[in-house]
Design a binder for these strands. Structure first.
Length: 345
DNA sequence: CAACAGCA
DNA sequence: TGCTGTTGG
């Protein structure tokens, strides 16, 4: 979800990159965003998620494990940022999402019963919801892998943006554009290993490279400020409320260009919004964030990782061990080379 | 989503 | 070796 800015992002503000370009950089990842992607995508052909012998879903653990080892191999340091309490304004959005999920879940069961496998898979993905235990097990795994995480007081994206703005991490990462509104200087999108993404409700794939969106370039190209982008978002609609009917990014852009603020634009077109506009501004411009945190990356605890994945959740020990060995050998090779470099200097 | 097996 | 379909839990 998030604010729909896709259509007006100027290409010059976006830099497509290779994963290796992010080497030695630190990135704050929107934890819910990524768990949701894993949960909806890592599924069998009929839509069933991976699960252990006790029936607990493990798709997200597979995703977190393999993606994390790959980041470590590349020298990319990530910190997971999870949502805390949703802002009051978001309650209605959350209620609607639950409703949609319920509908998708019914469709999933119907399709499954009718034996329409592809159809079933589509609805299964839409019916995914992140349960509390999934976040808890993901956090256990992160701890074992030496990857830091933060539970934000409110919105994870706001927290990640704050950390990037303060320079504690190089960038924040999410599929949503909300981070820009929250003030991130750099937003990494499509942060996955293989450059392909499944098209929604279709069995097709498109090539998608990781990209870095530079906020300052975006503001400069559009000739607006972050504050004005927030005004645009108010007209377009956000996760917190629906915007004005018939106004998308392009109209919002010209309206804010002309009138400068959402309320003035609304007056001009004789429309109104059933929302406290001032509260929305505060939500984006002065979000509630945690300011005291420590980011510490440690070595992988192999035993703990094996215990969680294999003993607790029935992952194949051979498969996990193979990956851990690869991480170890790549890291030791890196250390060998860098110490040699240092010696040569 | 990412690893892996199988095939050109 | 690179590509494509299947498996993982």
């Amino acid at each position: 979800m998030g604010v729909k800015l896709g259509d007006i992002i100027p290409p010059e503000a976006v830099q497509t990159v290779q994963l290796s370009d992010l080497s030695n950089k630190s990135i704050a990842i929107d934890g819910y965003n990524i768990l949701y992607q894993f949960l909806s995508n890592i599924r069998g052909p009929d839509g069933k998620p991976l699960q252990d012998s006790k029936g607990r879903v493990t798709s997200h653990l597979s995703g977190v494990f393999f993606r994390s080892t790959n980041f470590i191999k590349e020298g990319i340091r990530v910190v997971y940022v999870f949502d805390g309490q949703p802002p009051a304004l978001k309650i209605e959005t959350i209620r609607k999402r639950i409703e949609l999920r319920e509908r998708a879940r019914k469709m999933y069961e119907e399709a499954l019963a009718a034996g329409v496998v592809a159809e079933a898979r589509k609805y299964a993905a839409q019916s995914s919801s992140i349960e509390k235990y999934m976040v808890e097990t993901a956090i256990q795994l992160l701890e074992a892998m030496g990857i830091p995480y933060i539970i934000a007081p409110a919105e994870g994206e706001a927290q990640a943006a704050y950390m990037a703005a303060r320079g504690d991490v190089w960038a924040s990462s999410s599929q949503d554009y909300d981070s820009i509104l929250f003030g991130t200087p750099r937003l990494v999108r499509n942060l996955s290993l293989v450059g392909r993404r499944k098209l929604p409700r279709r069995n097709e794939y498109v090539v998608v490279e990781p990209e870095v969106l530079h906020s300052e370039k975006l503001f400069a190209s559009l000739g607006i400020t972050r504050r004005e982008l927030v005004e645009m978002a108010i007209l377009i609609g956000t996760d917190y409320f629906e915007g004005v009917r018939g106004i998308g990014p392009k109209k919002a852009y010209s309206l804010i260009k002309e009138y400068g603020a959402a309320d003035k634009a609304l007056d001009a077109i004789k429309k109104s919004l059933d929302v406290d506009i001032e509260a929305v501004r505060r939500l984006f411009l002065e979000p509630e964030v945690k300011k005291d945190y420590e980011l510490k990356w440690r070595e992988i605890d192999r035993e703990a990782t094996m215990r969680i994945l294999c003993d607790e959740h029935d992952f194949s020990p051979e498969r996990v061990e193979k990956e851990l060995n690869e991480v170890e050998s790549i890291l030791s090779e890196k250390r060998r080379v860098t110490s040699l470099d240092r010696w040569l200097m």
